[in-house]
Simulated scan of single mutants.
Amino acid sequence: MSSHYPIPMSLDELLAEARRLTGIDRDDNAVREPLEILLRDLNGPSCLHQHGAIAKQNKLLRLLCNRLRMQRDFAAHPEIAEQEVCAPVFVLGMARSGTTKTQRVLAATGDFNYMPFWQVQYPALFSGDPNESTQPRIDAADAYCRWLDETVPESKTGHDFATFAAEEDSLLTEQCFVAPSFFAYSEVPEYMTWFAGLGSQGMITNVEFLKDVLKYLQWQGLASADKPWVLKAPTYYGFEPELLSVFPDAKLVMTHRTPLATVPSICKLLKYFHMPFGDAFVDPVGLQSALAGQLNLHLANRQRITDLPILDYPFEAMVKNSTAIAEAIYQFCGMPFTEATRSRIAAWDGENPAHAKGKFVYSLEEFGLSQAGIETEMAGYVAFVAELRARFGV
């Protein structure tokens, strides 16, 4: 007998249950096509185990409920759409290259809007009343963090999901169901082929949804239109034109690290991210090729867009002196770097030493990868990183 379990609810049952849970009687037809494809993958190649099938169903219901609540509030309050989102800072880079540290250092300064994990998980008002308490949303996100820690405690050595810590946008934009990040938690090959087939419009849809959520959070009083947002996701590099089409005044900050380190580290982290849900894990060789393709697209964008508003620095420079890198980012963004900012960064560094949750250990050999294979398939980017590191003297 197979040990793999389908998600108990069908597409129509999921949509109906989201309407019941929220009390919002709206037909969310835009989600039908991507959700149908996603369900086929989750019920097939994802190889969900029993607890994972329930957990994945709960996640889908959370995403659907957030969508309905957000649609309700945009319809009731057209002024939300009039919110201004000015000059956001997007942190780009391969996963495992220092993007999380960069975002969290900048978030700690108080000079930027950012989304803590609880807002990424629950951006929508439960009741529709902007004066409602945020505590139930915070409690629900905190319970999810505890569940992850209990289910796969090793994962926090690679990425620590914490209720009030700045979190990446990819988990939030899954709520539009046009999102490349679904692959990080389950094997979804048909869905990824469908997303790729959308071309640039897929990522534009994703980023337009993000912009709507930022407006929504500002309207709720959870962020200020007077501050720039600091945003980040490892799915952004290679999609610079799409980001700038939605946010033409954005600044791009990119972290760089040799793929000899990032590729096996990504493989290890995705293994941990898959474990709460199913028994199928990412194919390392296939992942390496996909990452190479995205890096090549990024390098092509650099050649094609000569005035790309991007600041580059190597991972080692951020590890060595996060204050110096932050100061360079402020200068790049035209923002004053004050002594108060410097002090807050120092305080964050003191409270968040490297390997505080344990050392994240990985190797190429663990995943059947080789130095020669990476250096061949990612030759252009390997050379780019080497030149950047030499320029920074690290």
Rank of each mutant, 00 (worst) to 15 (best):
F182Y: 15
F183K: 14
S186Q: 13
V188N: 01
V188H: 04
P189N: 00
E190A: 15
A196Y: 11
L198H: 01
G199A: 05
S200V: 11
Q201S: 13
Q201Y: 05
Q201H: 06
G202C: 06
M203H: 15
I204V: 14
T205G: 00
F209K: 13
L210S: 00
L210K: 10
L210Y: 09
K211Q: 12
K211H: 15
D212N: 15
L214E: 11
L214T: 08
L214G: 03
K215L: 03
Q218W: 02
W219L: 04
L222M: 02
A223M: 01
P228F: 00
P228V: 04
L231D: 00
L231P: 00
A233N: 14
T235R: 04
T235L: 03
Y236L: 08
Y236T: 07
Y237E: 12
Y237V: 09
G238M: 03
E240I: 09
E240Q: 11
E242Q: 11
E242Y: 00
E242R: 05
L244V: 06
S245M: 02
A250H: 11
M254K: 15
H256V: 10
T258I: 01
T258Y: 07
P259G: 05
L260H: 02
A261D: 15
A261V: 12
V263R: 07
V263N: 04
P264K: 06
S265Y: 11
I266G: 07
I266V: 14
